[in-house]
Amino acid sequence: MNLFRLLGDLSHLASIFILLHKIQTTRSCRGISFKTQALYVTVFVARYLDLFYRYVSLYNSVMKLFFIASSVYILYLMKYKYRPTNDPSIDTFRIEYLLGPCVLLSLIFNYKFSVTEVLWSFSIFLESVAILPQLFMLQRTGEAETITTHYLAALGVYRALYIPNWIYRYITEDGVVDPIAVTAGLVQTGLYIDFFYVYFTKVLQGQKFELPA
């Protein structure tokens, strides 16, 4: 564990609390992509199956359980408690275009051709693109509530902090890297660049998040 990774994980935790806060205070999941949230549940369940056979640390196990539980809870809120505020007609990204390639990639690129390893690879590839339905929705509506942009920013910061974490590990662990995690992680961080541009130039200057028409 190093400071970059710890801050990254805390930023990931913060993003979830911001999202829960947004849904509960506005009593609405308007502007949140159900598809992206469902993909995150898929990612966490596929990856954290290792809770059953690998113990890393108490921190690691607690975080994994929290990510699974909170993502399922968010789906519940969107699908049941605040269902009327969820508008599927603007959440139109075709997720089969993400799932198909991720299945294929995980069958080709994995560290061992076993069920758990292929699922691990699949979860890494899927996480890297899981935000796309959300970004697509943002692009379509052209605007977002400020709190929703804080949620996305915290998620983006989490991914961005994993990059210095890998550089730090590369230096301190004798030039060792995890090629699947790093490649997918770089792609994932890249997806946030456009969003961050608008976030820093508008939202953090006190303006509303609006995309140019």
């Binding site: 990510f67 030039g175 995890d178």
Partner: peptide, 10 residues
């Protein structure tokens, strides 16, 4: 120098 699998990461 080489590849490793970082299964300790979340």
């Amino acid at each position: 120098m080489g590849w490793d699998i970082w299964k300790d990461e979340l």
